[in-house]
Design a protein around this nucleic acid. Structure first.
Lengths: 206, 206
DNA sequence: GTTCAGTTTAAACGTGCGTTTAAAATAGCT
DNA sequence: AGCTATTTTAAACGCACGTTTAAACTGAAC
């Protein structure tokens, strides 16, 4: 495996667990068993490394997500839950792309939103605008009474739910397992969250 | 104003905007116009300062919150929305306690959850267990069909929504204001979020 | 006026960070 | 084999951080 890939793999894992700010290049290169300077040689800077880690996933995920969301949009009648369910398969298929792919990616997403003040928001909206556009389209068609302003807020609330849940998903799953004494996986978490956010977005207008 | 209070005020403001990790003691003491060493003299360490900032709010908030939640619990019939609405007055009254109190506190809450890996969760559950207990009690009475496991997940999702929304509330309100061309306040955000989380927690069981 | 606990101050300490440097090692090509 | 471009390496750089030190200052008590 190339030095570049070794760095990407180690960085992905550590970033997911400890956040971007909380992970040093020394930890990454130590876990990857490469020289410290290799990060700056291959990626230029820590910030570029973060982008590279995210891009590896987004380039895999975005086409699948766009396809799934468009498919939902084409339907005559859309249930809001279908819109959110459209995310499930593309996300779960990340497990075939990389080991622990789904969980790692979602955690990275969470880290990116809460760590480096808005950088990831910029990255996603500028680099992958179609995903967001198709998603909004589908929600609008499923729930046309929703005003743009209500939509704005509810989608941000939804983003918050996802992002927070996923960035602390390891801890949550641990607590839940010890509390309820059964083994839980990320799929279980996804199953739980979809009805919640679908109901939230579909809440009656005041 | 005492040095201690000057430090607490400056720290609160900076922590809310830039997070705990993102704020250095030098920034705090510079804004407070006190000597750098004063933090360690008066508080012992940065971690203790963080606790002190949070405690100042929680000691004010916790009694009001407990009272409001107990009042809801005493009712014969509880609508879930009432449980969440019980938070509103105690939270808004923080604005009389300190300028920008509501917004600062909610942002701090968000920072605390996503910054320092679980420290705030420990702090809240051990130092203010009644708030959480009364809240769970009320939800349970409002929606008795909810199993403990479903309750567990939905309350964490709710926490995520609140915490994420509030930790980025300044940015969100800015975007919303420029998009919809009207002036928005934190109260507006609270109005929006309550139907969302109430519907989420009340979602039908699958 | 002296004493003394409490407070403030400037300076320094040690540590860990991201990044840079320049030499050494490696791999590809003729 | 010899040259060249790429990659790896050890070491150091400069900086910012939280914390500690010890001296200077303050204000009330006697």
């Amino acid at each position: 495996m190339s030095t570049k890939d070794k760095i990407l793999d180690a960085a992905e894992e550590l970033f997911a667990v400890k956040g971007f700010n909380g992970t040093s290049l020394r930890e990454i290169t130590s876990q990857a068993e490469v020289n410290l300077a290799a990060v700056n040689y291959h990626f230029g800077s820590k910030k570029e490394l973060i982008k590279a880690v995210m891009s590896r996933y987004m380039n895999e995920l975005a086409p699948n997500l766009e396809k799934a969301l468009l498919a939902v949009y084409e339907k005559e009648q859309i249930d809001l839950k279908e819109v959110f369910t459209a995310f499930v398969q593309p996300l779960l298929s990340l497990n075939q792309f990389r080991e622990n792919g789904t969980s790692n990616f979602l955690q990275l997403l969470g880290r990116g939103y809460t760590d480096s003040q808005g950088f990831l928001r910029w990255f996603l909206t500028t680099q992958y605008p179609n995903v967001i556009a198709y998603f909004v389209q589908a929600v609008q068609k499923a729930y046309p009474e929703l005003t743009p302003e209500d939509m704005f807020w509810r989608l941000h609330f939804t983003m918050g739910t996802i992002v927070f849940t996923m960035s602390s998903s390891d801890a949550l799953l641990d607590i839940a397992e010890s509390d309820f004494e059964k083994q839980l996986e990320i799929e279980h978490l996804i199953e739980q969250v979809i009805p919640y956010i679908a109901a939230g977005v579909a809440a009656p207008l005041s």
